[in-house]
Lab assay of single mutants.
Amino acid sequence: TYTYKLTDEEASRRAEDEWRNRGYDVRVRNNNGTWEVEVR
């Protein structure tokens, strides 16, 4: 499981799409203004 911490929502969406396209399960959540993109 990888977790990315990003401050930019758009960057988190791009990361989400990119990993999803590669067949990974992705979750995005906002934690106090930081976007966490979790990849498994």
Rank of each mutant, 00 (worst) to 15 (best):
residue 8 D to H: 04
residue 3 T to R: 08
residue 25 D to P: 04
residue 23 G to D: 02
residue 2 Y to N: 06
residue 33 G to H: 03
residue 13 R to Y: 06
residue 1 T to H: 12
residue 24 Y to V: 04
residue 6 L to G: 07
residue 32 N to R: 06
residue 36 E to K: 01
residue 22 R to E: 05
residue 28 V to L: 05
residue 18 E to V: 12
residue 11 A to D: 09
residue 33 G to Y: 02
residue 33 G to Q: 04
residue 13 R to T: 05
residue 39 V to K: 00
residue 33 G to F: 02
residue 27 R to I: 15
residue 7 T to M: 13
residue 20 R to H: 05
residue 37 V to L: 12
residue 32 N to G: 11
residue 2 Y to P: 04
residue 28 V to R: 09
residue 13 R to Q: 08
residue 39 V to D: 01
residue 15 A to I: 15
residue 29 R to L: 12
residue 13 R to P: 01
residue 10 E to A: 13
residue 39 V to A: 01
residue 2 Y to C: 15
residue 39 V to N: 00
residue 8 D to R: 02
residue 13 R to W: 06
residue 26 V to G: 00
residue 2 Y to M: 11
residue 9 E to M: 07
residue 39 V to I: 11
residue 6 L to H: 12
residue 30 N to Q: 12
residue 5 K to D: 07
residue 13 R to F: 05
residue 28 V to N: 03
residue 12 S to H: 03
residue 14 R to W: 08
residue 25 D to N: 10
residue 5 K to F: 15
residue 10 E to C: 15
residue 30 N to G: 05
residue 36 E to F: 13
residue 32 N to S: 07
residue 17 D to W: 14
residue 29 R to H: 13
residue 35 W to S: 00
residue 16 E to T: 09
residue 30 N to K: 10
residue 25 D to S: 10
residue 27 R to H: 14
residue 27 R to F: 14
residue 2 Y to L: 11
residue 25 D to W: 11
residue 18 E to T: 10
residue 21 N to K: 15
residue 26 V to H: 01
residue 3 T to Y: 11
residue 37 V to K: 00
residue 10 E to V: 09
residue 40 R to M: 12
residue 34 T to N: 08
residue 30 N to I: 10
residue 1 T to A: 11
residue 23 G to R: 00
residue 10 E to P: 07
residue 39 V to W: 02
residue 32 N to K: 08
residue 29 R to Q: 11
residue 26 V to D: 02
residue 5 K to L: 14
residue 33 G to L: 02
residue 35 W to P: 01
residue 22 R to A: 11
residue 31 N to V: 14
residue 14 R to Y: 08
residue 18 E to W: 15
residue 4 Y to D: 03
residue 19 W to Q: 01
residue 2 Y to K: 11
residue 9 E to V: 07
residue 28 V to M: 05
residue 36 E to H: 06
residue 40 R to H: 09
residue 15 A to L: 15
residue 8 D to W: 04
residue 35 W to F: 07
residue 23 G to P: 00
residue 4 Y to K: 03
residue 22 R to S: 05
residue 21 N to A: 14
residue 9 E to G: 05
residue 15 A to N: 03
residue 32 N to Q: 08
residue 15 A to P: 02
residue 31 N to H: 10
residue 34 T to K: 07
residue 23 G to N: 03
residue 22 R to N: 06
residue 8 D to C: 08
residue 32 N to C: 15
residue 37 V to M: 05
residue 35 W to K: 00
residue 26 V to W: 00
residue 5 K to S: 12
residue 34 T to P: 01
residue 26 V to A: 04
residue 36 E to R: 02
residue 2 Y to I: 13
residue 4 Y to G: 02
residue 14 R to K: 12
residue 18 E to G: 06
residue 17 D to N: 13
residue 24 Y to H: 04
residue 26 V to K: 01
residue 32 N to D: 10
residue 1 T to W: 15
residue 8 D to S: 14
residue 15 A to R: 04
residue 10 E to D: 11
residue 24 Y to L: 04
residue 9 E to Q: 08
residue 5 K to P: 06
residue 3 T to C: 13
residue 4 Y to P: 03
residue 3 T to H: 07
residue 14 R to Q: 11
residue 19 W to I: 02
residue 38 E to H: 08
residue 6 L to E: 06
residue 29 R to I: 14
residue 15 A to H: 11
residue 29 R to C: 06
residue 16 E to R: 08
residue 39 V to F: 03
